[in-house]
Design a protein around this nucleic acid. Sequence first.
DNA 1: CATCCACAGGAAGGACGGGGGT
DNA 2: ACCCCCGTCCTTCCTGTGGATG
Length: 405
Amino acid sequence: MAADVLDEVFERVISSRIFRNRDILSPDYIPEKLPHRENEIRRVGSVLAQVLRGSRPNNLFIYGLTGTGKTAVTLYVLKRLVEKARQLGVRVSYVYVNTRQRDTPYKVLADIASGVGLRVPFTGLSTAEVYARLVRALSRDTGFLIIVLDEVDWLVRRRGDDILYKLTRIGYELPRDAVKVSIVGITNDVRFVEMLDARVRSSLGEEEVVFPPYNAEQLRDILWDRAREAFQPGAVDDAVISYCAALAAREHGDARRALDLLRVAGEVAERENAPRVTVEHVKKAWSQLERDRVREVVRTLPLHARLVLAAALLATRLQPATTTGELYTIYRRLARSMGLEAVTQRRVSDIVSELDMLGILNARVVSRGRYGKTRMISVAADPATLEEVLREDRRLAALLEAKAV
DNA sequence: CATCCACAGGAAGGACGGGGGT
DNA sequence: ACCCCCGTCCTTCCTGTGGATG
């Protein structure tokens, strides 16, 4: 009997009425065509193509909001460039590091090192030692190396621009006939340059390309482009695509979100054994994506951060926004009732900032004149989802049960 | 118009656990 | 075995500040 159930599942997956090739909608997929990014491809390409003439490309800075195709365009250009270079007998390689996931100087250097075939332990060495080894390895290398630092604003915000400075100067440490290194910095934050040391700024900003967000119409083109290959004929219609595009356009034209949305909508439809994807499926997908995101974030939060979150949740039951001081009072009460030593208000302030950056809380600084300067803190994520995730911890569930704040 | 609130947020550093090189 | 380094949380101490109030 169990076999019959499984057979049914297998059959459904194999002969999907929805998907033809789901991978085409995956976030890692680099498509052959990038609609509405022709100008950007041309600009990035003409900077990096200098290697084909045997000269080091200028360092390049790419700005644009999330999901505007910065990463896709960069990787697309590099992939094509490496192919072309090989035909011409030019040695070109590149290393891609997402500094949001690899958010310390050590990890970034270690990734670059392993990208050029150097084995580096993931901890234990000093950063200076990894740098020295990297320099040694590069000294023996020839050709061109392009280092892509994606979401580099995260790294700089948290760790400063020291490694950026070092990396932009790595060429001076190498023999003249060794590899020529170029840096491509990608950032979501336009004001990011202001955080940089003037020397880094001028070095990294030798060339700049700005990626404008997509509008709903462009998003539709992008979605259709992928949907045609990813879905079975007739499995999606224009209403579904337009709806995805509209939702994503509202989120500053984020194509990644749009594609995620479409993929998950397809998955929902498949699970329901529906003949095709509907707008309802997209709506479900939207909330599922949000839940996944919140769950993922909350799960990795340290205990006191979760307590702060619980405190914020309790506070919003009474009022839309809470000051830092009020939040701290509630938090302290929660901590004490759990028999925990409360962390300082300074620490809670940092936790709030982190939660704000993660999009779980909203915190904006306001001045209330005589009544001081503080932050008004509110819950940004869906409260019900948040509560559900927090309740996975039994002790927190008990705290959230309490009516009185 | 100066004052002064209630914090913001920078700087320095420490405890601790996970992991080196030699 | 020894000492070293890093990242994560956290503390302590600190200077800075927008604008209602007196």
